[in-house]
Design a protein around this nucleic acid. Structure first.
Length: 773
DNA sequence: GTATTATCTAAGTCT
DNA sequence: TAGATAATAC
């Protein structure tokens, strides 16, 4: 038997050996899914299939990189580099850069990230003079995004009476206008947003059969990871690509589908056999990752979902410890408990920092964890949140790069026309925008012709604008003369960004400078790596010159997960459960298991959404190899307010035999005097499990918001008893006297007379007033 | 046009 | 709480 096959179990081997035809692998958590994919590709190459004919779509670019490396070692050859491997978005952007011309896009098109899209939408909404309460960029962006994910173009959206009616009913009839304008503006700027990468690829293949044919011939073998999370657009593209040869392997687990919110359609995996009647289905049910307790707990949890592909996940691994549940008094306390537990585990069981992960539902929860870890001297790394490329200082610099590469990029233009300050303020910019829209020009073209166009601007302003144009043109001229690093340095200097940043000696300023350094390092690394690859690239018939536009190609698609690990870093990982998909850790802490948080309050209205939350928790639990901990806090800061929370219903869904409740530590919980009657949930202190079971979930009645922290709960919010005439202390204004109280909670305001600063009206919710009586 | 201050408002997950 | 925006003063 081939060496490759001998390293697999029977079912895995079956999956690997079937090269031809359609195949669906249902891979339970920890069942060696990646192993199957990796070995299958290795095996295909070993069997003589040309790696150039293989397309492998992974969930992150990092996963692609790691898979390639593993294939190198399995087949002991560098042939693996010729496999096309990457995320849907990165692979399709590559195709669009090569072929997009027929759709009217230059190969240097910009990829707008969410931030760019929302800024543009905001500008459009403002131009159209719509009510920005009804039309928030977020809501509109979601609407447009889901349309695109379902392959509905702006024109189709506009023409559909069903959609229009739906929007009308939602009090947002203008969305079709916004979408239309938005699409036109993006096109004019030679820009695509994330969804466009899919939509346009689809259109490309539809409209140009000869191009589709070319890629069908190229990708005779297609493998897709995390198939349960593909959306309609991805589904349709795959279908057309695989149509000719039907050699399509999809791997996934319906129990781990957690991306419905961005259009993932679980039916894709459920209907695979209908789409490909000849397809073989293979189920990987043995879990190699986790202990019996963890697998058992996860199984008992997920059993609460309906309508799954039936499967029985089991394991041969050791029994392991029961899952321990920590009950904390507050979010900060939760952080301390987790940090303490990590500390203990390190000492007693000799774990390294990198063996731990802390998983949470929302990014905001990371703060309490960070603080506690910092305090305990435990190094950590946060994935996600505001990613590196999302930082303002980085985005500003990237905007220079973008405008250098694609001068039509209006969002980049707006970002940097007055950064660093060069005296072209908002008024001038607005005038330019109006002129640009009237003449149907990009802002760049408008700026270039600023002297010729009839724009009511002062001549000084015009001169400053043309200075800016001259500077940018000098960068553009260097684009293919200098390598990325040299040009980046030049831009930083000439634009005076470097100078501006260096002048800022505050801690944040230094931090920003550090980030810029890091960006430069990344560019430097890229240039060097590119030089190494140059030979190979030439062989591929591509031009890899290590220039800035090369560097920028993938930046927008880069996520934190894709970032190279900074060497031998031994750090605890902090991330959302979503970000943890596909990863595993010896010890996992899942924190914040509270109603309205996990499951999220957004999901409580419908069964499908609740089930998705449950799958999410399932994903979280199954990341753990040896030990899993779950925690929740009885009180948590939300929206700047301390709120009571309830243990998550999911805790009760796990079979109790897998759980072990920590003795409730008894720190001096603040004395709580609940006002009678105001608390519909009379169980702020979930003292016993029994009590919780009886009370917290009755039918599917949505829980009343638990917002009324009673007056005595915390000193800063001890303000319900505030009366006129009282003396209070304010952090900034000093002591003063209350002269009036107005408004109803939560918007109660107090008028306070401060001897030092005069009368102030303060929102009690925010002002930290202290009563001095 | 810009710097500073006050006020508002958002907080779900991601390519 | 923190970041964004509006209002204000310069």
């Amino acid at each position: 038997m081939s060496k490759i096959l001998s390293q697999l179990n029977d079912v895995q081997r079956l999956a690997v050996q079937q090269i031809e035809g359609a195949q669906m692998v249902i891979a339970g958590a920890g069942s060696g899914k990646t192993r199957v994919l990796t070995y299958k590709i290795a095996y295909m190459i070993e069997q003589g299939i040309d790696p150039f004919n293989i397309l492998s779509l992974t969930f992150t670019n990092k996963a692609a990189r790691e898979m390639k490396e593993r294939i190198y070692t399995i087949i002991d050859s560098s042939e693996a580099r010729n496999v096309w491997m990457g995320t849907f978005h990165s692979v399709f952007s590559r195709i669009l850069r090569a072929e997009g011309e027929v759709l009217g896009y230059p190969s240097n098109f910009t990829i707008y990230d969410t931030d760019d899209s929302k800024r543009l939408l905001k500008a459009i909404i403002k131009e159209m003079q719509l009510d920005d309460k009804k039309y928030t960029p977020g809501i509109v962006a979601n609407r447009i995004s889901s349309a695109k994910s379902n392959l509905i173009t702006a024109a189709q959206y506009y023409a559909s009476s069903n959609i229009f009616t739906a929007d009308q009913n939602a009090q947002r009839p203008e969305i079709r206008e916004i979408y239309k304008t938005y699409a036109a503006r993006c096109f004019k700027s030679s820009a695509m947003d994330f969804d466009d990468l899919l939509l346009n690829t689809y259109i490309l293949f539809q409209k140009f059969p000869e191009i589709l044919y070319k890629y069908q011939e190229k990708f005779k073998y297609i493998l897709v990871d995390e198939y349960q999370d593909t959306n309609h657009a991805q589904y349709r593209i795959l279908r057309s690509l695989a149509d000719r040869y039907q050699n399509l392997t999809v791997v996934g687990d319906d129990a781990q589908s957690i991306y419905a919110f961005r259009g993932a359609n679980i039916r894709n995996i459920l209907n695979f056999n209908r789409d490909y009647p000849e397809a073989k289905t293979i189920k990987l049910e043995q879990n190699y990752r986790s202990t019996k307790n963890i697998v058992g707990a996860a199984n008992s949890l997920i059993a609460n979902n309906k309508g799954q592909i039936p499967k029985k996940i089991w394991t041969d691994n050791a029994e392991g410890d029961k899952i321990r549940i920590f009950i904390a008094t507050s979010d900060n306390h939760e952080g301390k408990i987790v940090a303490q537990s990590i500390f203990d585990n390190k000492i007693t069981h000799h774990y390294k920092n990198r063996h731990f992960a802390i998983l949470y539902r929302t990014n905001a929860q990371s703060r309490a964890m960070e603080e506690a870890l910092r305090h305990a001297g435990i190094p950590y790394r946060i994935y996600g949140g505001i990613s590196f490329y999302g930082r303002k200082e980085i985005k500003d610099i990237l905007a220079y790069f973008r405008l250098t590469i694609n001068p039509k990029d209006d969002e980049a233009f707006k970002r940097i026309i007055n950064y660093p300050k060069r005296g072209i303020g908002n008024t001038s910019l607005q005038k330019m925008i109006i002129a640009a829209n009237n003449k149907n020009l990009s802002l760049w073209e408008t700026a270039k012709q600023i002297h010729r166009l009839n724009i009511p601007l002062h001549s000084t302003a015009k001169r400053k604008i043309s200075d800016f144009v001259t500077m940018m043109e000098s960068f553009q001229a260097q684009l293919h003369q200098l390598d990325a690093f040299a040009l980046a340095e030049l831009i930083l200097k000439q634009s005076t960004i470097q100078h501006t940043l260096q002048a800022d000696k505050t801690i944040e300023g230094i931090g920003r400078m550090d980030n810029v350094e890091e960006l430069l390092n990344a560019i430097q690394e890229f240039v060097e790596k590119d030089k190494e690859d140059e030979e190979q690239a030439k062989f591929d018939g591509e031009e890899y010159a290590g220039t800035l536009d090369d560097f920028m190609k993938d930046v927008a698609l880069m996520t934190d997960a894709d970032k190279q690990d900074d060497g031998d870093s031994d750090k605890v990982s902090l991330m959302t459960v979503h970000a943890a998909k596909g990863l595993e850790f010896p010890v996992v802490y899942v924190v914040g298991l509270e109603e309205n948080l996990f499951p999220s309050f957004m999901s409580l209205n419908s069964r499908p959404e609740l089930e998705e939350e449950r799958r999410l928790f399932y994903v979280a639990l199954t990341r753990a190899m040896q030990k899993a901990y779950i925690s929740y806090a009885e009180m948590r800061y939300k929206w700047g307010e301390l709120k009571f929370s309830e243990p998550s219903r999911f805790l009760d869904e796990i079979d109790e035999k897998y759980l072990e409740f920590e003795n409730r530590p008894t720190p001096p919980s603040p004395k709580i005097s609940r006002t009678a009657g105001t608390a519909p949930l009379n169980k702020a202190k979930p003292a016993s499990r029994l009590q919780r079971n009886q009370s917290f979930f009755k039918g599917n009645k949505r829980l009343t918001k638990i917002s009324d922290v009673s007056p005595a709960a915390t000193p800063p919010s001890n303000l319900k008893n505030l009366k006129t005439g009282m003396r209070v202390k304010h952090g900034k204004f000093g002591t003063g006297k209350v002269i009036a109280i107005e408004g109803a909670p939560p918007n109660t305001k107090a008028k306070v007379q401060f001897p030092a600063v005069g009368t102030k009206t303060l929102l009690l919710r925010f002002a930290k007033l202290e009563i001095l009586e």
